[in-house]
């Protein structure tokens, strides 16, 4: 493992294999909380935070499962870990960093069922990442999510005021926008740094 590997992982997670635009994970919060840039950034930050933590914990749990010869139960176990982790983080924040807790608001519990978080845990295992690589992949994957939801929210704020056919009001225009941004992100697939 070298810095180059980590850089490659980061670039892959943020751009070429962006969780939303290339792997289509975590679409629910992506559409749900992208109406305003502020809330979108809040959600993105919360996801980044939880994805980083979840990668670390899932790595440990996966080690335990493999040691116990239970590798096939990883999906179930990861769901358990993430749910418990988010609950724990929520309680911790409520007690010690109430400002951050109120800023994240409802998004934190929402992340419990975010498939991007489960996805990052499973992909770490699939790609045979070691501990540091896992955490880096988790955090940069979260940053990719943050970038995606920020861009999307910025465009959506504009479409609110744009003139488009009545039938496209609301979600339809948002979905078209999301599709176009995803197409744009496909341009990154040619990117090679290693």
């Amino acid at each position: 493992m070298s810095v180059t590997t980590l850089l490659a992982i980061s670039l892959g997670a943020i751009l070429t294999n962006n969780f939303i635009f290339a792997q289509f994970l975590g679409i629910c919060p992506f559409l749900g909380v992208s109406k305003k840039i502020d809330t979108a950034i809040g959600m993105g930050a919360a996801v980044t935070f939880v994805m980083g933590l979840a990668s670390a914990f899932a790595y440990g749990v996966n080690k335990i499962l493999i040691a116990l010869d239970l590798g096939y139960m990883q999906t179930v176990a990861f769901i358990l870990v993430i749910a418990a982790l988010v609950q724990f983080v929520e309680m911790f924040l409520k007690k010690f960093i109430p400002t951050l807790y109120t800023a994240l608001g409802v998004y934190l519990p929402l992340i419990t069922t975010n498939c991007a978080v489960l996805g990052v845990a499973l992909l770490n295992v699939q790609n045979n990442y070691n501990f540091i690589e896992s955490v880096v992949y988790g955090i940069t994957g979260g940053l990719g999510f943050l970038l995606a939801i920020f861009l999307f929210a910025a465009v959506r704020e504009q479409t609110e005021f744009s003139e488009h056919p009545k039938a496209f009001d609301g979600f339809p225009i948002a979905l078209i926008t999301g599709g176009l941004i995803a197409l744009a992100f496909m341009g990154f697939s040619g990117l090679k740094v290693w």
């Binding site: 749990v61 239970l70 139960m73 179930v76 176990a77 358990l80 870990v81 418990a84 609950q87 724990f88 309680m91 911790f92 409520k94 007690k95 010690f96």
Partner: peptide, 19 residues
């Protein structure tokens, strides 16, 4: 998995009291 869940449950229960 049950044991794992119980451990998490206990941690959360304690955390709920502590925090």
């Amino acid at each position: 998995l049950g044991a794992l869940a119980v451990v998490f449950g206990l941690v959360l229960a304690i955390a709920a009291k502590v925090f």
